[in-house]
Write a protein that binds this DNA or RNA. Structure first.
Lengths: 195, 195
DNA sequence: GTCTATACTAAGATAGAC
DNA sequence: GTCTATCTTAGTATAGAC
């Protein structure tokens, strides 16, 4: 039999996840209480346990979902072809995706140490998979002779750190649009890899 | 009359600061309790209040001291001269200083949101002063005609983000020494600014 | 599915003995 | 200068009524 249509469980669940995301991003996982999350949703603290076994799972599911979406989105955006074409696409993709997922990205970088060891290992695997995407592009560029790099691993980490920085200062109301920012970064990255 | 030489206040104070730094860096400000800090020092929680009015001040003093040391250390290291010479020095200085102050740097980036608004404003001013050091070097390079940059502010933030990334992955036991890492970054930064 | 009530633990901070 | 004891508040999580 169909679920009672007046039931609000299917509405409440996403509200819980959204409130957790917003609050964790703003105040940090450790500083946010289940009571605060409940208050944001408009239910009592006890009711949250209908949707999550505990606070840790709320954090882990948030991060896991974000990383899965990131990897899936790149798989769809990857244009293939020459390394330089892929690098260009990667830089634009990374900036665009991160800016539209500000809170999840912020949490994924700040709250790693609040994951249990098993959950941490899982997220780390996904993060490494993403780094490998960029490193493979750089390696391809080396093989093509397009890029001259002293160290592809270091360059990968340097580029990702640089791109992530955008999230900490970009404002919709700032003097540059996302596209202008992305354009400047594409150019800086190209120069940095000697392309 | 001289302070009693058996008195341990002058020993305990730095122990409190060191314990707070270590614990805040490892677990995050919000997740660390005054009791944990006291346990690390080997005193009772109440005794901490002889050295700090509250937990917030412990965090703020830590960050303020770090930023002051950073700015003072650069003032001593600044070689002056042409932009390229200064940029080279800045990159090496930033990596070396950050790697020898791992915990304080980590805290200074992660715990900004746990500062009271007044304390936050103070730290932000100092952080901006440090960014201005780099931006002024880039502007000088532009004036000299050494660098070709689309945007000195963006480039400043991109370079600092890239350099800060080193702190998240560098291991003393890794395959590269600090000097090798710094060398690779100097080269990447040079290329990125079109020098 | 949500509420109230509550068990249990621990937080930051203070008072007063030693 | 440090300890013990304590105040007050708030945390996660559960039980059972509705």
């Amino acid at each position: 039999m169909a679920r009672k249509s007046g039931s609000s469980a299917e509405k409440t669940r996403p509200l819980v996840e959204a409130a957790a995301k917003r609050l964790f991003a703003r105040h940090g996982y450790a500083a946010v209480s289940m009571r605060q999350i409940a208050a944001e949703v408009g239910v009592q603290a006890g009711a949250l346990y209908l949707y999550t076994p505990d606070k840790q799972s709320l954090l882990f599911e948030l991060m896991k979902t974000h990383m899965e979406e990131l990897l899936a989105a790149w798989a769809k955006s990857d244009p293939g072809g020459a390394a330089d074409r892929q690098l260009h696409a990667f830089v634009e993709f990374h900036i665009a995706f991160n800016l539209q997922s500000l809170e999840a990205v912020f949490i994924s970088y700040m709250e790693l140490r609040n994951l249990t060891p098993e959950n941490f290992a899982h997220i780390e695997d996904m993060r490494r998979a993403y780094e490998t995407v960029l490193e493979d592009i750089l390696k391809a560029g080396m093989a093509e002779g397009t890029y001259q790099l002293e160290d592809t691993k270091l360059t990968t980490l340097a580029i990702i750190a640089m791109l992530n920085g955008v999230n900490t200062w970009y404002k919709e109301s700032g003097r540059l649009t996302r596209e202008q920012v992305a354009g400047i970064y594409v150019e800086m990255v190209r120069r940095a890899v000697g392309g």
